[in-house]
């Protein structure tokens, strides 16, 4: 494991370069963490809201009870359906009367005018429009309605967060990678003499690359872990505040985000470090060893 020792030796030798690289990955990871926080919060909101955003679908009048029951079984198997409740004409009338606090005598009708219907609870709010379309496309329903504008706003916001988040993540990843590549290039250039000596006395390229890549990996890993701890600290206070200030809102818990943040920070930090040093090695080592 001499190359690990060499990597740490190099890390110690060039503190200013290392600090710049460290900070660049550190801030990238912080941005990533904010995005993960936002994403997980949206997920939680989505799951929470799914309980209140149901799809109501009214069967065509000529559909029989048996056909309706059969359709309900089919709809149950759709991937985005969490639960489905079938309402017979009687159930619908009962619900109507209860809602308006009426008795059957207050509402005398010869024939029950309510259609057969289903109430579908989706697994995720953002899947409501698609699910509603699927229900509509069966051709058995007169009307399919759902939360309308509220759902649309939520879904639009969800997709916007995903798109903007992905673009921002991609950009910060590229920025961080470019910084690391250039810092490692400078680091290799400053060690040019040393590397040439290694090469002249019989070091293979792998032997020369190993400590450089290890150096990049540890730089990324430390930055990722540091970003994790800082994020956890900030989110701890933020969530405490949010839970206290808006208790009815479905805030995530700190324990929900710890594992994803730790995995993403260590993995992504390490990957940026390794990838950056690999690209730097490929571009500059040939020139140094020439």
């Amino acid at each position: 494991m001499g190359f690990v020792r060499d990597a740490f030796y190099n890390l110690r030798k060039r503190p200013s370069l290392i600090l710049i690289g460290f900070l660049s990955i550190f801030f990238t990871q912080l941005i990533v963490n904010i995005f993960i926080f936002g994403y997980l919060e949206m997920e939680k909101m989505g799951k929470f809201s799914a309980q209140s955003f149901t799809i109501k679908a009214y069967f065509q009048s000529e559909i029989t009870d048996e056909k309706a029951q059969e359709t309900v079984q089919k709809l149950k198997n759709l991937p985005n359906v969490s639960s489905i409740v079938f309402l017979s004409k009687e159930d619908a009338q009962k619900k109507f009367l209860e809602y308006f606090e009426l008795t059957p005598e207050d509402f005398p009708v010869d024939e029950n005018p309510f259609p057969l219907s289903v109430e579908i609870t989706p697994k995720r709010v953002e899947s409501i429009p698609e699910l509603a379309n699927q229900v509509k496309n069966t051709g058995l329903f007169d009307d399919v309605i759902y939360g309308g504008k509220n759902v649309d706003v939520f879904v639009r916001f969800y997709h916007m967060l995903l798109s903007v988040g992905s673009i921002v993540l991609f950009l910060v990843f590229i920025f961080s990678l470019v910084v690391i590549i250039n810092l490692i290039r400078i680091s290799i250039q400053s060690r040019k003499g040393e590397i040439r000596v290694f090469h002249l006395i019989g070091a293979t390229e792998t032997f020369i690359r190993r400590p450089i890549i290890t150096e990049g990996f540890f730089e990324g890993l430390f930055a990722g872990i540091s970003a994790f701890f800082l994020s956890i600290l900030v989110f701890h206070f933020l969530l405490d505040f949010l839970h206290a200030a808006f208790p009815f809102f479905p805030w995530i818990n700190l324990t929900d985000i710890m594992a994803p943040l730790l995995v993403v920070d260590t993995f992504m930090g390490g990957i940026i470090g390794i990838l950056g040093s690999l690209i730097a090695c490929n571009s500059v080592l040939k020139e140094v060893l020439r």
Binding site: V197, H199, L200, G202, A203, T204
Partner: peptide, 15 residues
């Protein structure tokens, strides 16, 4: 590298 491992070199500029 494997050729060079068979050599011991004292460089003029020491290296």
């Amino acid at each position: 590298p494997f050729l060079r491992r068979n050599l011991g070199i004292i460089f003029q500029d020491l290296k």
